[in-house]
Design a protein around this nucleic acid. Structure first.
Lengths: 224, 224
DNA sequence: ACGCAAACTTGCGTGCACGCAGTTTCCTTG
DNA sequence: CAAGGAAACTGCGTGCACGCAAGTTTGCGT
């Protein structure tokens, strides 16, 4: 039996590789077509054809048309965030490890991805699909946080990971929406311009900051 | 001008009342038909017909077939939770106010609703729709929390509310899934039986507990 | 009291998600 | 190495979400 050191390294297997190749082909086809013709002029049938599979197969891989386009940008961000957290030395505060890992993985999105982001912002359906990908970081984050907290804090880890995902989503929402803040606060009355239009890293840090006390408390409970 | 005491009391307006009546009719029709024939034997067309509107109108009110059925159970839970929080005296810890309000509103679901919950648990599509309703509590919660924290903690309130929603969702997920815990922890190794099968209130409190330090810190920052 | 503008409803058409069953491809066990 | 079995791809059919462009109702201003 192979070494079970890392989580995601079973024997590659020819079958699985073809599967990932197909997935990647769909990603690329979806993004390329969306850029070429505009997002609304791309049907699932077109993407499938460009990737060389049947339309039916397409949504064995993606649940919606938008997911394929967006996944070309998000790729395997979840795994990278989890790895980035695990890579931090065990001495640093868990809060800082998570925050820095998130900021790091959301800012270096690459030059090409930034081009695609402009495309995404133009269509609300794509924006929503993009925002939904923040939920994907939850399981890997749960795993690495649980590792630091020990088995006693298993479901604490789950809650913290979900909270991080929620905070990231909020940061992204605000970032993607320079104008038009609809129905958020109840009756805050006067000022609504809490953050004029900060950069993405700033927004991420600001959104994660309120969770720091919860992380600290959870972390200290494991080392009295 | 009318009294602007509570958040949701603009002038009723005859137009709005008919709208709510239609919504309620759809809710009831959806639930009744789902109970009578089983959830899978109910088409949108049937619900619309039973409520006396066209199928097209149906999804001006509900985005999916499942939402109509589920909303008969969830009703206006969001508003009730927010009201329950606001009703607590200003002296108690914000954490406790929120936790108790959530527990209160999720446990007294009523006798009839419990019958419907059994129906919901039988179909994963309905379960998912039910879990998605937890996101609805986020905006009202943001409002009441922001009210306590003052305008300085506006986006802190947003993050906390989202975290609460996430925690509630986790609690409900675990509660609705007595068996079969799929792909949550990374490699926690031995014990996975963190909570054998606690009651819903217990699960809610357990899920919200890790957030308490964050609430306390935010609250204290407003009163030095 | 009357008409106007906005909002709600409706029919129609298109594209899509997904279950089902048959076929092909790959991995594993004897 | 061969056969069994599982997983993935595919065609087909059904129901649904949603944009668009009328038609209809409600409520308000003059």
């Amino acid at each position: 039996m192979w070494d079970a050191d890392t989580v995601t390294t079973p024997p590659p297997g020819l079958r699985e590789r073809k599967k990932q190749a197909t997935r990647e082909a769909l990603r690329r086809a979806a993004l390329r077509l969306a850029v070429e013709r505009g997002p609304d002029q791309v049907r699932v049938e077109d993407i499938a054809e460009a990737a060389g599979v049947s339309p039916r197969t397409y949504n064995n891989y993606f649940a919606s048309r938008e997911q394929a386009i967006v996944s070309a940008v998000t790729a395997d961000r979840e795994a990278r965030i989890a790895a980035a957290v695990a890579a931090r030395p065990a001495g640093v505060r868990l809060t800082d490890a998570v925050t820095e890992a998130v900021v790091e993985q959301y800012t270096d999105t690459g030059e090409r991805a930034h081009e695609a982001l402009l495309l995404i912002t133009t269509r609300t359906a794509l924006r929503d699909a993009f925002l939904d990908t923040t939920a994907d970081i939850e399981p890997p984050l749960t795993a690495v946080i649980a590792e630091r907290l020990g088995d006693a804090g298993a479901h604490t880890a789950r809650v913290l990971a979900a909270s991080v995902a929620a905070a990231v989503r909020i940061a992204l929402e605000g970032w993607l929406r320079p104008t038009g803040n609809a129905g958020t606060a109840g009756r805050s009355g006067a000022g609504e311009l809490v953050l004029p239009s900060g950069s993405l890293p700033d927004r991420l840090r600001a959104a994660l900051a309120p969770l720091a006390p919860a992380f600290d408390a959870a972390e200290q409970r494991t080392r009295p």
